[in-house]
Each structure stands twice: as structure tokens, then as C-alpha cells.
Design a protein around this nucleic acid. Structure first.
Lengths: 211, 211
DNA sequence: ACATTTGTGTGAACAGTGTTTACAAGGTGA
DNA sequence: TCACCTTGTAAACACTGTTCACACAAATGT
């Protein structure tokens, strides 16, 4: 009776072991520089064993990405509760995004950089990625409603802000910001960049000053 | 006497043939999915022959990237002459950058996407990439001088604008803009995004209206 | 003219890759 | 006890990037 469930658990345990081994290796050496044989030997199994749990190497990466997105969404949603002002949340979200890329570069790279060669909008990606996209979109809609960004088309605003964040994080994650602005206070610099990106439109009147 | 020069020319011709074959293949199938054997067979040589002209596969990619950057810089410098106003040039540069990514996705991908796995700041990249970075930086400095972007630190401004552009192009190049905003007029959307990204700071007075 | 050096192309091999397959062992359910 | 199903494996397949000893031709030195 319960053997089925125990076997299910064992199976999940094995998947975990594979994923953990794979993540550690991928992160340290990059997806392409890690072979199935290495992953297998790290958990002391034969290479073919991995194929009982994952269809192929890419599927291991996909599973790790999925986990990364889950962690990311969770992290962002925690901040969501704390700030009532949507712009404040956007600011915090940007910091969180950058912080995530800096604090967990392993997950970040797995999620966004690894295997850029293939643009994969084939389902697997869509599932977890679309969720965070919609989260972001909703937030931007709220921000647009404050008038801070003028009458701009929401679609344009979404891509402008998303692209901005995405690009900045990319520059940071690839070390170009650090390399090209040596000696500067990185945290302060990032705050200035974020603040500039969120600057209100010229004719924005902030009428909700405390009262 | 002239035999040396002729041999040099022949050598260059051979390099060209290899590069052309490699580019066509890389672009269509991605760096990792193209083998040295395929490149070789496409120009009807043995695989080992390629190693007389390039140290390894990565060096072929590097050479192609170099060419891509040359084309890019040249294209941007042409626009540079046409517009006296730096902000206008920035706008045009952004359009040019996006246009380049859309019109020559092969070069674009070769330059920015391919082989993201390895962050390569090892000389080869620095040479051609730094040039276009400095071009961009100079332009931003000019823009900052107009006051349009307020008193913001130039460094922050550079990364804010660069990241913005970089991220946007990435979203476009990976098809996410097209996919997520189906049916919208892409050109108009992009213009709105660019315009939003270049919006002046709230207290900017445009005192140079014609006169 | 001859000998020698130099450059170019090659087949075969090496060490590695992702993945498949035929097969063995062992627990599960009837 | 018997069939079944899952898990693990060694061996193989068809690749990969790269190297090397070797052949051949053209350029050079004498």
C-alpha cells in the first residue's frame, strides 16, 4: 500500500541528489563544461542512471531554472506586502532583482544566462517565466495609475522598465559595471541608476504629500 | 619578391572563406551546434586545415565578433555626423542599435549572445567592445551637459542608458517583445519606449527653442 | 640546377561528449 | 512461486574539438 508512496519519495530524493550535484557543478563551471558523466560520478552513479530521472541534460537545467524562478517569485512577493506605494514596490523590486543576481548568481545565471544559444519559448520556459512577467506587469499598471510616468502606453512602460532592469542586471552580472567604474561605491551608484530610471515625467505633480 | 605578398593575399582569402562559412553556419544553427568538421566540409577542406588559420573554434568566433563590432561602429558613426544635437544622436543611436539587432541578427547574436556562458573580458573582447563603449560614454557626457537629465552623476547615467538599451534589445532579439505584445505596431511601440527612456528630468527647461 | 627550408593540407588518432540499448538484479503484487 | 516493473549498469554509437606525423608543393639559398 504505502510502498508506492515510499518509492515516490525515494525517486524524489534521487532527483534532488542529481539536481544538487548538477547545480553545484553548473554554477562553478558552466553548463557546457559539465558532462553527464561528471554529474553521475559526483553522486557515485553511472551516467546512464541519470536518464531514468531526466530525459536529457537540458531537462536538468530546466528543473533547476524552475526552482530558481520559484525562489525569485517568493522573494519578490515578500517585499510586495511591505510597501503600499506601487512605485516604492517597484524600487524595492529593482533592488531585490539586483540583489538576487548578486546574492545568488548561481540561480540567476541558470535562469537567464545559461544556454542563451537557444531562445527557448517552448513551454518549459513560459510556465515559470510568464508568472513573474505578469507579476511585474501588474505592478507597472499600478505605477502607471499614479501618473508618475505620464500618459505613456502601459505596454511601452512595461518593456521600458523591464528592459532597463534586465539590461542593468546583465551589465552587473557580467561584471561590466564593476570593471568599468572601478573604485566607485557600487551600492550608491546602483541607487542613483535606479532612481534615474524611475524619475517622474516632467509635468508630474506629487499631490499626495502628507495630508 | 612579390610572392610573399601574393601568399599573404591567398592566406587572407582562405581566412575569409572560413569566416564566411562559419558565420553562415553559426547564425543559422548556433555556435555550439556547428562543428569544425561541418565548417571544413562546407569549404571542402579537411577539419585539420582550419587549424592552420585559426588557433581554435573560439578564435573563429572572435574574428567574426570583431567584424561585427567594426560594422556596428561604422554604422553608428555615420549617424553621428548627421545630428548636431547629442540627444538626437542618442535617440538615433538607440534606433540604430535596435535596427542593427533586427536587421543583422546574425552579427548581433555573434557579438552579444553567443557563448554567454563565459564572461570574457580577456583582451579580445575588450579591444573592440571598449571602443564602442567609449563612443557611447562620450555621447552621454554631451547629453548630460544639456541639462536634460538633471544633475545626475555621469557614471550612473551611462549605465542607466546603456543598460536600458541593452536590456530592451535583448528582449527584442529574444523575441519576447514580439511574443508578449502581439498585434501591436512594433515600430510605434519601440519609439514610445525609447522616448520614455529619454524623457527629461522634471525641472528641465528647454530654453533653446528656435532662436 | 640542385638542395633545403617553409608553408599548406591530410588521415588517423586521442580524449572527451550526450545518449541509447541490451541486459542483470531485486523488490512488488497476484 | 511467478510474472512484472523499476532501477542500475557496461558497452556501444555517433558525435565533438584538437593534435600529430606525414606528404607534397612552392619559395628560397647556393
Amino acid at each position: 500500500m504505502s510502498t508506492a508512496k515510499r518509492r515516490e519519495r525515494d525517486r524524489e530524493k534521487m532527483r534532488r541528489r542529481i539536481l544538487d550535484a548538477a547545480r553545484q557543478l553548473f554554477v562553478r563551471e558552466g553548463f557546457d563544461n559539465v558532462s553527464m558523466r561528471r554529474i553521475a560520478s559526483r553522486i557515485e552513479y553511472s551516467p546512464a542512471a541519470l536518464y531514468r530521472y531526466f530525459r536529457n541534460k537540458r531537462e536538468i537545467l530546466s528543473a533547476l531554472r524552475e526552482e530558481g524562478f520559484a525562489r525569485f517569485v517568493e522573494r519578490q512577493q515578500r517585499s510586495r506586502k511591505r510597501f503600499p506605494d506601487p512605485v516604492e514596490r517597484l524600487r524595492d523590486g529593482a533592488r531585490g532583482y539586483i540583489g538576487f543576481a548578486l546574492a545568488e548568481p548561481d540561480h540567476y545565471h541558470l535562469m537567464f544566462s545559461t544556454s542563451c544559444g537557444q531562445v527557448d519559448l517552448d513551454g518549459e520556459w513560459a510556465a515559470s517565466s510568464l508568472r513573474s512577467f505578469h507579476m511585474f506587469r501588474d505592478l507597472v499598471v499600478e505605477c502607471a495609475a499614479t501618473g508618475r510616468f505620464g500618459e505613456v502606453d502601459v505596454n511601452a512602460l512595461v518593456f521600458a522598465l523591464w528592459g532597463q532592469l534586465h539590461g542593468l542586471v546583465h551589465l552587473i552580472a557580467t561584471g561590466q559595471v564593476a570593471a568599468l567604474s572601478k573604485g566607485a561605491d557600487l551600492d550608491a551608484l546602483l541607487d542613483r541608476i535606479i532612481e534615474f530610471g524611475l524619475r517622474p515625467v516632467p509635468d508630474f505633480q506629487q499631490f499626495q504629500s502628507q495630508s
